[in-house]
Simulated assay, not measured.
Amino acid sequence: MMLPTHALVGMALSLPVAVAVPELAPAAILGGFAGGVLPDLDLYAGHRRTLHFPTLYPLAAVPVSLLALVRPEPATVAAAFVVIGAAAHCLMDIYGGGLELRPWEGTSERAVYDHVSRKWRRPRRVVRYDGSKGDLAISAGVAVPLLAFVEWPLLALIVIALAVGTVYALLRRRLASLAPIVFGAVPEPLEQYVPERYSEE
């Protein structure tokens, strides 16, 4: 799924804490946002493998969340939602399309690499691909309660994420056609950082 969806879901997961304990709302919401974004920082370095841990993040979420319950402080709550958001991100990617330039074609059987089993989890394609109508619907669906409960300036994060997601969804298929052209013009010393799927014809 697209990055804005992951960011919004991470933030939405923090809403119960944010509403119940308003003084911890900024830490919880920002933690969820950071966790939702974190795994995709590997986009140009082994995407869906380097920072994606579909088994380890959920396991790590248990002790970190317990610590936040025992010591509910901004740092512990933020840390808990970073891990929870990252766990949700990796699990969501399994239910999306494969790791390929045009995931709507369904040619890849790689969704997320599982470091515990040392193999790729296959894509379930419940949401056909990142930027699909279904993906955008999830973004919009989780944005609604966030827009109702979150205050400025954190509200700006939600509006920006939803706007970026909408534009991306509208342009997604065109971007797949442009990627080989754009990344084909990358200078030779930087070619090693271009994911293989971006040079697909």
Rank of each mutant, 00 (worst) to 15 (best):
1 M>R: 01
2 M>F: 12
4 P>K: 04
4 P>F: 06
7 A>G: 10
7 A>N: 05
8 L>K: 08
8 L>A: 08
8 L>Y: 06
9 V>W: 01
10 G>S: 08
16 P>T: 09
17 V>Y: 01
17 V>T: 13
18 A>V: 03
22 P>C: 07
25 A>I: 04
26 P>V: 12
29 I>C: 03
30 L>Y: 01
31 G>V: 08
31 G>Q: 07
32 G>E: 04
32 G>Y: 03
32 G>A: 10
33 F>S: 03
35 G>W: 00
36 G>K: 06
38 L>Q: 05
39 P>K: 07
44 Y>K: 12
46 G>F: 11
47 H>K: 12
47 H>R: 13
49 R>N: 05
50 T>W: 08
50 T>I: 03
51 L>R: 02
51 L>Y: 08
51 L>A: 08
54 P>F: 05
54 P>C: 04
59 L>V: 14
59 L>Y: 04
60 A>Y: 04
62 V>A: 12
63 P>S: 10
63 P>N: 10
65 S>W: 10
65 S>F: 11
65 S>M: 13
67 L>H: 09
70 V>Q: 12
72 P>G: 09
72 P>I: 04
74 P>N: 07
74 P>M: 06
75 A>S: 13
75 A>I: 13
76 T>A: 10
77 V>W: 06
79 A>F: 01
80 A>K: 07
80 A>S: 15
81 F>L: 07
83 V>C: 12
85 G>F: 02
90 C>Q: 05
91 L>A: 14
92 M>C: 07
93 D>W: 03
94 I>W: 09
94 I>Y: 05
94 I>G: 00
94 I>N: 00
96 G>V: 01
98 G>V: 10
101 L>W: 05
107 T>P: 00
108 S>P: 11
109 E>T: 14
111 A>N: 05
111 A>C: 08
111 A>H: 04
112 V>G: 04
113 Y>G: 05
118 R>W: 14
120 W>L: 05
121 R>Q: 11
122 R>M: 01
122 R>F: 00
123 P>H: 02
125 R>V: 00
129 Y>H: 15
130 D>M: 09
131 G>H: 02
133 K>F: 12
133 K>Q: 02
134 G>H: 02
135 D>Y: 01
136 L>A: 07
138 I>A: 05
138 I>P: 01
141 G>I: 00
141 G>T: 02
142 V>M: 08
143 A>L: 08
143 A>P: 10
145 P>Q: 12
147 L>N: 07
147 L>T: 08
147 L>I: 09
148 A>N: 03
151 E>K: 14
151 E>R: 15
151 E>H: 14
154 L>G: 13
154 L>Q: 13
159 V>W: 03
159 V>T: 05
160 I>E: 10
160 I>V: 15
161 A>C: 12
163 A>C: 03
164 V>Q: 04
165 G>F: 02
166 T>C: 07
166 T>G: 09
167 V>A: 15
169 A>L: 11
169 A>S: 15
170 L>A: 15
170 L>H: 15
171 L>I: 09
174 R>M: 11
174 R>Y: 07
175 L>E: 09
177 S>N: 11
178 L>A: 11
181 I>E: 11
188 E>A: 15
193 Y>C: 07
194 V>W: 01
196 E>G: 15
196 E>S: 14
198 Y>P: 00
199 S>P: 00
200 E>H: 13
200 E>S: 13
